[in-house]
Simulated scan of single mutants.
Amino acid sequence: MKNNRLFRILYYVLGKGKVTAKELADKFEVSVRTIYRDIDSISGAGIPIYATQGKGGGIEIAEDFVLSKSFLSENEKQQIMSALQGLDSTTKQYDNELLIKLSALFKIKSSNWIEVDFTNWQNNKLHEKAFSDIKNAILSKHVISFSYFSSNEEETLRYVKPIRLLFKSQDWYLYALCSLRNDFRYFKISRMRHLEIQNQTFEDSFENLVLEKEIPHENTVKIKIKFDRKAAFRVYDELNGEISEDDDGNLYTEMEMPKDHNLYSYIFSFGDGVEVLEPKEVRIQIKEMISKMAEKYII
């Protein structure tokens, strides 16, 4: 079975259960006659694939068929093991039993050459439970509800159809269909509270839904910033734009950010090691906020 198309047909039929020759022909862009020749080749390799005629007929594989591990190359086996090592790191509720079993099946000694850990240094158990609950809701197609704290300082109760979990930059997000907005939305898991899995289920299929690669923001502003040298470790860690340096070691860059509370929270997180150079309106707002903060510390 040297022809890669035969493998693809095999995996496709395994996934679908039963397909027609025309469906396979359209999928792999060959003639129906070629598909039947391919089916004969697959059958000749010892795989119980067969075609039935008439209404409700089609091409299928015997239900008790198990794909032999010999169909996987050594490189493919290693890729599966590495992928599972990374997946296991998304939650700590499972042990490494599956990795041990596959290691024995593939006759591969599992080497810990990579460590992936999506949890933060605080080991937040609440975050871990939310991740697990959301994952279960996605797989079982249950509506979930939660209180959500948005970047514009609003708290709202949301009922959503969960679709997919996304790790973006340094945070986990849920992509879901929100009943409140009647639209698809990203929700940052760390901003969710009182998450509950509802009894209500949904039939919608979001399998082929393409997620937006950027989290949309309606109102953004481009700012020019100067950083003290002491903030260099964060600048190079967190900012991806072009960064220049003057003779004193100060760093300069431009960045576009949502024009909301997050903008000022991020700037203030650098303390006195940052100065916004432009635009003027942001400088004025920062000055007013500093004045208000100073009033709280009058002695």
Rank of each mutant, 00 (worst) to 15 (best):
K213H: 05
S147G: 07
D260S: 12
A176M: 02
Y264K: 05
D248R: 05
N208R: 04
E254R: 02
S140I: 01
L166R: 15
P258L: 10
V160G: 02
N199Q: 14
N124S: 05
F146L: 00
S169V: 02
F206T: 12
S169C: 01
P162C: 07
Q122S: 12
E238I: 03
E155T: 12
R191L: 11
D247Y: 05
S169E: 14
E245L: 04
L195C: 13
L177G: 02
I163P: 08
S147H: 09
S145P: 09
E203N: 15
G241S: 13
L139V: 10
K188C: 03
N182S: 14
S132P: 07
F227D: 01
Y159W: 06
K222E: 13
D237M: 09
F233M: 06
E153M: 11
V143I: 07
E254I: 04
S150A: 07
E214T: 08
E153F: 03
E245R: 13
G241Q: 08
D246V: 07
I163V: 10
N262R: 10
Y264Q: 02
N124E: 08
E207F: 04
T220H: 12
E214R: 07
L157R: 09
E214F: 01
I134D: 05
R193S: 14
F131V: 01
M255I: 11
Q122K: 08
S179Y: 13
A137L: 06
E155Q: 11
R158D: 05
K213Q: 08
L166N: 08
Y148K: 06
F227A: 00
E238N: 04
T156K: 14
